[in-house]
Structures are given as C-alpha cells and as structure tokens.
Amino acid sequence: MAGIRDVLRNTMKEKLARNEVVASMTVRLSRSIEIAQIAASAGFDTIYVDLEHNTLSIDTCCQICIAAQGIGITPLVRVPANTPEYICRVLDGGAMGVITPHVRSAAEARAMVELVKFPPLGHRSAGGALSHYGYRSFPLADTYAAMNDASSLVVMMETVAALENVEEIIATEGVDMLLIGSNDLCAEMGIPGRYDDPRLAQAFERSIAAARRVGKHVGIGGLANRDDLMTKFVKMGARYVSTGTDLAFLIGACAQRAKFVRDIG
C-alpha cells in the first residue's frame, strides 16, 4: 500500500530544493476553479489565492486550492490576518501553505510555525483525512511528519522592523521561505514606488544572504511590472517570483487587443 509520502506532493518545494526558480500567479479576480487549470496551462508552478486584498470567501478559496492540488500546481493562500480562524481553516481546506503578512520578528514567525506545523514543530490540530492526500487515512506519526515537510510557511518581509530582524526570522525553525513585499517595504522606508532606490536592492541582498546561510529561500513580490528588477533579484539568488495577478493579466491582454483594433482605423 502506498504511504502518505507517495501521494503528498508540493511541486514548489521540490523545485526550490533543486534551487530552481518558481513562477507564481496571484489569484484575486477568479471565483471558480478554472483558474487552476489556466495557471497550469500557462506554465506556472504555483498560485497563491490572495485573501488579504479581495473579498473571496474561504470556501471559494479552498475549492480553487483543491483543484490546483489535482493538477500539480502548488496552492498557497495569503491570509488577511495571522490568526487560527484563517490559517488553520485554509490549510485544512486545501492549501499547501500560507503566506503570512506583516511578520516583524522571530517571535511572530515562531507564532506562525505554531499554527502551520504539526507537532513537534508546532501545534497545528489534526483535521482528519484531508484532500492533500486524497482523504485517505494514514498513521498520525507519518502524517504529521509528511505534512510538515510538504506544507509551506512563507512569511512576508514588508516592514523596516522585519528587515532589521531578517536573520532571526528566516532562521526560525519551521519557516520555509521569506517573501519580500516590495510595495509595502518601500512605503515603510519612506520611498513609496521608488523601486530603483538602492535601499530596496540592499534589502534583497541582505535577505538572500540570510536565507542562504540557513538553506532557505527568498521570494520576490510587488515587482510584477519591473521585469528588469525581477531578473536582477533572481540573479542575486531569489528563487520565487510573484509574476502578477489574474486581474492584471486580463486587463493587460484586453487593453492590448482593444488598442490593436483602434489603431487599425
């Protein structure tokens, strides 16, 4: 009989373990499961459903996550608040990991580990047979260990306080990746929208160096319209790229085709 590790997959973590670059699409507009197949067809490795910045319900979010699981797209969810009623429910509902905003210290990162990881790393409560492993039953000891390895805790680094504590945050056992929120971080540093300011590049450099020392990874967020900077930071060592939202992709393609027709005349 197959063990839980034979049926539990996280494509994103597998690619990161090989030091490959991961392409992610953010879901903010779509309310149906087709977006998972679209992401797969487009070649994305992962999606993250952004509950922080839209009105999607937890139920809709989890339906999208389950659809993504079945086709090899790793589903993550950015929660609107770092609390059990969001984190625990989306993890049990189908997410393979959570993105937790506004984590400012190692103590706050540790609190996230408590919610995301099963014992002995954390104190996540057992939710029974989950979609992640086909609603099958496995020994709890095997399940806890496999789920801790397969699930992802991605903490956002988007404040000056987080930058000052980045070494301790990324070294926290149970934290899998650091995602730099360039928009909020620049605003916090007093340089809103000034992505070419050297302080942003220095923040990436410091964060990537800290992650490398502990064998972890850094992701790029908030730079979807700056291919040059995404390229620069990937070459610097970042390995996860948030490429943009489904809404932005739709608007961009629509505007391009409308312009094409207007320009004909």
Rank of each mutant, 00 (worst) to 15 (best):
R18P: 06
A238R: 04
N54F: 04
P80F: 07
R110C: 01
V27D: 03
E108A: 15
Y195A: 10
A129L: 08
Q37D: 09
N54A: 07
T243S: 11
S125Y: 10
C65W: 03
P139D: 05
G237R: 00
K13A: 09
N19D: 02
L179E: 05
R213W: 13
V241R: 04
V21D: 05
L163R: 09
V98L: 04
N54V: 02
R18V: 10
V261P: 02
R213P: 06
A187D: 11
V77Y: 15
P198V: 13
D176F: 12
M147N: 00
V113M: 05
R78S: 10
K216G: 08
I169K: 07
E164V: 07
G3Q: 15
E164W: 11
C88G: 08
R89D: 00
K232T: 11
K235N: 08
K216C: 13
R31N: 07
Q256P: 03
A81H: 11
P120I: 06
L163P: 01
T100K: 08
L229H: 13
C88M: 14
A187H: 12
A145W: 14
S152M: 13
C62S: 02
S125F: 09
L29P: 04
A258D: 01
T243P: 02
A201R: 11
M189H: 10
R199T: 12
A109G: 13
N82W: 14
Q37T: 05
G72R: 07
E85F: 13
G219I: 03
R5C: 14
T55Q: 09
N148F: 12
H217F: 14
E205N: 07
P84I: 00
Q202R: 07
R226V: 11
L163C: 10
I33L: 08
I251T: 10
P80T: 06
H53G: 07
G221A: 06
V49P: 01
Q63P: 02
K259T: 10
R239N: 08
L51V: 08
R212K: 15
A210Y: 04
G181N: 01
T60S: 13
T11V: 13
I264F: 01
V27M: 06
D196Y: 13
A201H: 09
